[in-house]
Nucleic acid binder design. Structure first.
Length: 594
RNA sequence: GCGGGUAUAGCUUAGUGGUAAAGCUCCAGCCUUCCAAGCUGGCUAUGUGGGUUCGAUUCCCACUACCCGCUCCA
């Protein structure tokens, strides 16, 4: 047997994975018999099992195994006011204009005025045969040399055209014309100079009507993320669950976005499933009052157990660590990468955000984002709903009561200095800061939040892509064939164990095999198969990632003596190793390895 | 959305302006004492809608979906 590594060609690799997913019932195109439906995918029998295993693993790790996190299962439809408060109505429904040259989009109300000469071409042609036959209008910026302008236009067109367009220097710009000279025009892309198209809305949220009359007054949205329901129900959960800050609320559910370009199989879909935790913590000032200090992160700090003196930074790193451990537990440990967003990347309300990325055939892409969002979300809902989202913290009140006025003022001054040092967003006015401290000293605050937010469909795709392996097997006669194996971690494998009678036409073997199958079936997903040769049945299970196979043979029936009676062959997917196990010990043996 | 490409069976591919081919898979039967064995038989396809034509899977147009690039961030 010779092993050859999988072909490095990423496109071919993805095509193989897509094909396998369909062939073996993991993932199908939605609405296929009607020609499909853009950007949505269905999970077949094995995909559904895989996804459920991942979902269950997440739920267990995030809530059942912990004392400080509770679950929530909120509706997809909510009062549209939630999406105003969250900012989604604004950021997801901007009027956008698209650059006709590079197709880059800018917000219609944010175009910087440009000055220069308006140039026009009737099209572009490449020796490769590629061409564009529409009018191309580009602004030659003030002071730009005509030759460097042409070079720039060719480069952008080559970029837009992709490989088909060929080398930029070989592109021929047709019928160059000077059209006009403009001053302070907002009709050209600030970077490319390309003419901007019509202003039109980009509604990234899926609109729907709640109520049968379907008037404009009934408009709401399918949620673009699950998190907002957690914030909106924060007070209910807090008051009904006997939880105290720090604690978390987690939720798994569908979310919807009108992605401009769904792509990379299920990676960017319009309907997808999110697994989100909102972990509520005390503001650093409260931690400082109670503990006298806020623990500072240092490389290698112990993150295994939360400490009372942790501020948002430590909590944030704690959750990155927790999530990393989770990915290790489902077999993705060695394909992860981390991207710490720079201050420039961060949204104005975010303090830090780490992307957990994973290697896919099409590149290294985000699986999960872990953001430290301060009090932005609950604060925003408090403001928009007019309902207090504060909690009362007895310990804080008692600790604050022991502070001297000077100590209190020092805390306020520290915060004011921090506000003034902000590079993004408006600093909070001093009066508001003082009002906030007044509430804080009485034990009241709006909790801050750490948000680990993962995509379940992405996770499933990552697990499949990671598990996918093919190699060439050559038998004694020199005949070779390509073998495909999904090396799923046993925890996530859709089928845990195959059960096979060695031969189909021996009723005793079949009967015994059915018996073993019925023994295992109540405990985990098993698959019984008596057709074809035993080797083929092993191969079939390898291809869907079943970690174990149990074969009932003549020794099971006692043919080779009583010591082997009622023992079966357990075959391991990854090593082909075979173990002789007593039927009475089989369930325990397997369970210890799942 | 813009540009490029693709669309034939469950999968991978062939082919033709005149009855659509193969391999694998799958199903049934026989056979088979551990890694896709063999034999026999069987099911299943030209993405959708128009047009040209006596006749279109083939030529033309439109649509849809998918893939690649621009974009993106669960």
């Amino acid at each position: 047997m010779s092993n050859t590594p999988a072909k490095p060609d990423p496109i071919a690799q993805m095509e193989k994975i897509v094909s396998l997913c369909k062939r073996r019932g993991f993932i199908y195109q939605s609405s296929e018999i009607y020609g499909g439906c853009g950007g949505v995918w269905d999970y077949g029998p094995l995909g559904a099992e895989l996804k459920r295993n991942l979902r269950d693993a997440w739920w267990r790790a995030m809530t059942r195994d912990r004392e400080d996190v509770v679950g929530l299962d909120a509706c997809i439809l909510m009062n549209p006011a939630i999406w105003k408060a969250s900012g989604h109505v604004d950021t997801f429904a901007d009027m956008m204009r698209e650059c006709t040259l590079t197709n880059k989009r800018v917000r219609a109300d944010h175009v910087e005025p440009q000055s220069g000469t308006v140039m026009q071409f009737s099209g572009v042609k490449s020796p490769s045969g590629w061409s564009i036959n529409r009018q191309i209008t580009v602004l030659m910026k003030q002071g730009e040399h005509i030759e460097s302008f042409r070079k720039r236009v060719r480069a952008m067109l080559a970029m837009t055209g992709g490989p088909a367009a060929g080398k930029p220097e070989e592109l021929e710009l047709l019928d160059e014309q000077k059209i006009d000279v403009v001053n302070g025009s907002v009709d050209f892309h600030p970077e490319s100079g390309g003419a901007l198209g019509e202003s039109r809305p980009f509604n990234l949220m899926l609109r729907t009507y709640l109520g049968p009359t379907a008037t404009e007054a009934d408009v709401t949205y399918l949620r673009p993320e699950t998190a907002q329901a957690i914030f909106a129900q924060f007070k209910n959960v807090y008051e009904s669950s006997r939880v105290k800050v720090p604690f978390g609320i987690c939720q798994i559910g569908k979310a919807f976005r009108n992605e401009v370009t769904p792509k990379n199989f299920t990676f960017r879909s319009r309907e997808f499933e999110q697994m989100e935790l909102e972990y509520f913590i005390k503001p650093d000032e409260a931690v400082e009052i109670i503990s006298g200090e806020v623990a500072q992160w240092t490389e290698g700090a112990d993150l295994s157990e939360p400490k009372a003196n942790w501020g948002w930074d430590m909590w944030h790193r704690y959750w990155v660590d927790q999530r990393t451990k989770f990915y290790q537990s489902i077999g993705l440990g060695d394909v992860l990468e981390y991207y710490w967003q720079t201050p420039a990347d961060l949204a104005h309300y975010a303090r830090a955000c780490v992307d957990i990325l994973c290697e896919f055939p099409f590149g290294t892409e985000e699986l999960e984002g872990i953001a430290a969002r301060g009090e932005f979300d609950l604060g925003s809902h408090q403001k928009h709903s007019g309902k207090s989202q504060e909690v009362f913290d007895e310990e804080l009140k008692l600790a604050a009561a022991k502070l001297t006025d000077e100590q209190k003022e020092a805390l306020i001054q520290k915060r004011l200095a921090a506000e003034n040092a902000k590079t993004k967003g408006e600093p909070m006015p001093e009066a508001d800061v003082r009002a906030w401290f007044d509430r804080l000293f009485k034990g009241n605050y709006v909790p801050h939040v750490i948000e680990p937010s993962a995509g379940l469909d992405r996770m499933a795709l990552a697990v499949i892509a990671k598990a996918y392996e093919e190699f060439t097997k050559t038998d004694e006669k020199g005949k070779s064939e390509t073998i495909t194996v999904l090396r799923f971690h046993p925890r996530v494998a859709p089928i845990k164990c195959g059960v096979f009678p060695l031969l189909k036409n021996k009723p005793e073997l079949v009967a015994k095999a059915r018996e073993v199958y019925n023994l295992l079936k109540p405990h985990f997903n098993c698959f019984y198969d008596e057709t074809a040769s035993i080797g083929r049945r092993y191969a079939r299970q390898d291809e869907v990632g079943t970690p174990f196979g149990v074969t009932i043979d003549f020794e099971t029936l006692g043919e080779k003596g009583p010591e082997l009676q009622d023992t079966v062959t357990v075959r391991e997917r990854d090593t082909n190793a075979q173990h002789r196990i007593k039927v009475s010990e089989l369930l325990g043996w397997l369970q210890a390895r799942l």
